[in-house]
């Protein structure tokens, strides 16, 4: 699904160049659930953003499900993000003046799906995350856990190949975090590829594979037996 070879990325801060990724090789197959760990500033988000085509590597190759991702113009990039990728952010990033339903329907709007179809699908995914009763509420009326569930529903709405979550539980308490992880495990059980950036070991333990970054390099990569979140909820 994801083939990354020898990727480099550095940021320009004033006159200084800050190397962040220093030659990453990273493959993810379909149906995997991977966690990326590492200390703050190790480049986890940077890697995830490159995978998400929100940012571009300076060097190296990235192949997403057979498609070479390189020098894309914004129009194509937008299309790939829409069709192949679903994003989940630490701070939810819902649009605050839109209802839960309209938030979930937004990726479908950009696909040109008709209004009726859109609402139908959005409602289906809201139901999947257990929030069909909250469809008409705006984000400010929802709890943190509920917001993240809406965000997950939105990420799922366009049926992407890969879900990318950057610290999805970072702003949630433990109990709520496990609820969100339970949902993500369930989605992975259905076959969806999931990549989660986190620095909470208990969250990482609920994925099937742990990757650890340090100073822009992968220092360990191991398959583990995931802890089922259901046990804690």
């Amino acid at each position: 699904m994801i083939r990354i070879t020898d990727i480099y990325k550095s940021y320009q801060i004033g006159k200084n160049t800050l190397p962040v990724l220093k030659g990453i090789d990273f493959n993810v197959d379909k149906g995997e659930m991977v966690s990326i760990m590492g200390s703050s500033g190790s480049g986890k988000s940077t890697l995830l953003n490159i995978i998400g085509i929100l940012d571009e590597a300076d060097r190296g190759t990235y192949n997403l499900d057979g498609i070479e991702v390189k020098n894309l113009n914004e129009k194509i990039a937008a299309k790939y993000r829409n069709q192949f990728l679903g994003f989940i952010f630490q701070s939810f990033n819902l649009i605050n003046y839109k209802t839960a339903l309209d938030n979930v329907a937004l990726p479908l709007y950009y696909q040109g799906v008709s209004r009726k179809k859109r609402e139908e699908k959005a409602l289906f995914y809201l139901d999947k995350v257990g929030l069909s009763n909250w469809a008409k509420h705006v984000p400010s009326e929802l709890s943190g856990g509920q917001k993240q569930r809406v965000a997950i529903a939105r990420a799922l709405a366009s049926d992407p190949k890969v879900l990318l979550a950057d610290e999805p539980t970072g702003a949630l308490d433990t109990k709520t975090s496990y609820g969100v992880m339970e949902l993500l495990q369930q989605i992975n059980d259905e076959g969806k590829t999931v990549i989660i950036v986190t620095h909470e070991p208990d969250i990482a333990a609920m994925t099937k594979r742990n990757v650890e970054l340090k100073d822009g390099l992968i220092i360990s990569d191991k398959i583990i037996e995931p802890v089922r979140a259901t046990l804690y909820v």
């Binding site: 914004e74 129009k75 937008a78 993000r81 994003f87 990033n93 649009i95 990726p107």
Partner: peptide
């Protein structure tokens, strides 16, 4: 956010 969800610049 909109662009992450697939909005083109156009």
């Amino acid at each position: 956010i909109r662009r992450a969800l697939g909005a083109t610049p156009m």
